[in-house]
């Protein structure tokens, strides 16, 4: 049953799956990786992005385009969320991180319950020409929805990498995570920079949420499934590295896919998280961390 051809196919599909994992983790990589904010509400906002996409696409708009249209709204939401977090927690002292964790868990639960109240517990899906069909190359078949995730993840990583390395605000965001005081001495306001970064992280969630509902059906409690995976990708990458997030997502996707094909589906999550532990043991700062 097992063959090299099958292994190759599993690896190829793992690349697509890995890009999807990277896409849903990029927002967290900005908020948690760069800013050190315990943004555990990230997967809940991701699911919220999926539901918002569902609403807009029910008007006949393409789900991916819906995700793009939602980005400015999510940007403002993220900025507001950070401002609230800053005023009520971060500003007050050194234990803000621990209390912040509680704050973001609270936000996640509120989002989950709100989604249940508004949409009910049923799964929601969207329709598009690229959902449910696949690209056939010889004997290989690649679902278009996964190819879409692949393309969006590459594009997002590229845009974010350029933004953080080539623009003033982008470099300021990277700097605020490293030395807030130094940034202040340069005349920049760290709070505003962080607010901007949080806005970007949440805006990315809108697009990633659209991908989530394109790839599969969503339900309000789905954030619980993704909390482990997204944090795993970000930590494996090395906090704050966009290209690292893509590579970590790819590693996780390929390992999961190959393990699933060879050892069996039940082993896939265990081997993936085992890999994270081994990596952290050998390189605690993650793959691309400094």
């Amino acid at each position: 049953m097992f063959s090299l051809e099958l292994l190759f196919e599993a690896a190829l599909f793992g690349v697509l799956l890995g890009c999807f994992y990277a896409a849903v983790s990029l927002g967290l990589s900005v908020a948690f990786g760069l800013l050190d904010v315990p943004y555990v509400a990230h997967p809940a906002l991701l699911v919220m992005g999926s539901y918002a996409t569902y609403l807009i696409s029910s008007l006949g708009i393409d789900p991916l385009l819906s995700g793009l249209l939602l980005m400015p709204i999510f940007f403002l939401l993220g900025m507001g969320l950070y401002r609230f977090y800053y005023e009520t927690f971060e500003k007050r002292g050194s234990d803000a991180g621990v209390r912040g964790l509680g704050f973001f868990f609270g936000i996640a639960f509120i989002i989950e319950v709100a989604l249940i109240l508004v949409f009910g517990v049923d799964q929601r899906t969207v329709r598009a020409g690229y959902i449910g069909s696949s690209l056939e190359i010889g004997d290989y078949r690649f679902p278009y929805r996964m190819l879409m995730a692949f393309a969006v993840a590459l594009l997002l990583t590229l845009v974010l990498t350029i933004y953080f390395s080539k623009t003033f605000n982008g470099r300021a965001i990277k700097a605020v995570g490293q030395d807030e005081s130094a940034l202040r001495l340069m005349g920049a306001n760290p709070v505003k920079i962080k607010q901007l970064a949080f806005g970007i992280a949440t805006a990315v969630n809108a697009l990633a949420g659209a991908l989530l509902i394109i790839v599969g059906p969503v339900e309000p409690a789905m954030d619980r499934i993704y909390i482990g995976r997204t944090f795993c990708v970000v930590v494996l990458a090395g906090l704050g590295s966009m290209s690292g997030t893509l590579v970590a997502g790819l590693i996780l996707g390929v390992v999961e896919s190959v393990v699933l094909m060879t050892l069996g589906a039940s082993w896939a999550p265990a081997v993936s998280f085992g890999l994270l532990l081994v990596m952290l043991g050998l390189r605690p700062q993650g793959l691309f961390g400094r």
């Binding site: 049953m1 063959s3 099958l6 196919e9 599993a10 599909f13 793992g14 799956l17 679902p143 996964m146 790839v215 599969g216 499934i225 999961e256 896919s257 699933l260 094909m261 069996g264 589906a265 039940s266 896939a268 999550p269």
Partner: peptide
């Protein structure tokens, strides 16, 4: 094979079944 509950994508499993 068994798979972990709440698995979100079955492409790999279906590939293995097809093979």
């Amino acid at each position: 094979q068994n798979y972990p509950p709440n698995n979100t994508d079955f492409s790999s499993i279906i590939r293995a079944v097809r093979a």
